[in-house]
Design a binder for these strands. Structure first.
Lengths: 111, 111
DNA sequence: CAACTCTAGAAGGTGTTGCTTATATAAGTC
DNA sequence: GACTTATATAAGCAACACCTTCTAGAGTTG
């Protein structure tokens, strides 16, 4: 499943937003999502499973809690895909900025 | 419908790729997609409709042909969303590059 | 104008997705 | 050890996405 397919759901996008500043327990995520989207705990758990199974997050148990965190790799693929369209909104990058952007991409690919 | 939802389909992503270097007729897109994905012309036409209806492309009639082109706005939204995760894979941008990136975002928001 | 090309739409079938309720499992607490 | 908390899984269902075949309409060509 491509990262785009996983991101094609507003709940899953929101969950990732909640994880952007660091790991959160399933419960903490759940509290916010159930409130914002009016869905149940198992529904959230299923979305977390999709994120997990497709490598968008990592999980780490701590006692009875599960700590979820963003795994950036698949998001980087999305970023790479978008990259080819970037010239539409940044047509006249000056030489220096272009060079920096190019260098970033190169470094990314090498890793 | 959020751009991410539209992009959550491999056929539609491929169609946009085909349009990245300039406008193409429905027929030209169709020829490639039907061959690559083994789906029919109406199926491609329906995907084009989704792209069109959600502002991912523009269309321009020319005789009996329809010329499709990328409309970058919604892709920019995707880029903006991804932006918050970018620090995961570019953690130590030096001051200059950071400044350029920041400036780009600012300019984008003003437009 | 008849035949053909290009494209879109309508109607219908099917698999998938995302939800629900109910339940299981594992770990803390009294 | 019983009870509670935290999380995941199972089963079932409704809605939707995407496909197909068939057809319509607009424009071109002989």
């Amino acid at each position: 499943m491509h990262a785009f397919d996983v991101l094609g759901d507003p709940v899953r996008r929101r969950i990732l937003e909640l994880l952007v500043d660091g790991e959160q327990t399933s419960g903490a995520v759940c509290a916010i999502i159930t409130e914002e989207f009016r869905i149940t705990q198992p529904a959230v758990s299923q979305h977390l499973k999709v994120l997990r199974d497709n490598g968008l997050t990592t999980v780490r148990p701590e006692g009875t809690r599960r700590l979820y965190a963003v795994n950036p790799e698949p998001l980087r693929e999305v970023d790479d895909w978008i990259d080819r369209f970037r010239r539409f909104w940044t047509p006249h990058l000056d030489a220096l900025a272009t060079e920096i952007a190019r260098g970033k991409r190169e470094r990314r690919k090498q890793q």
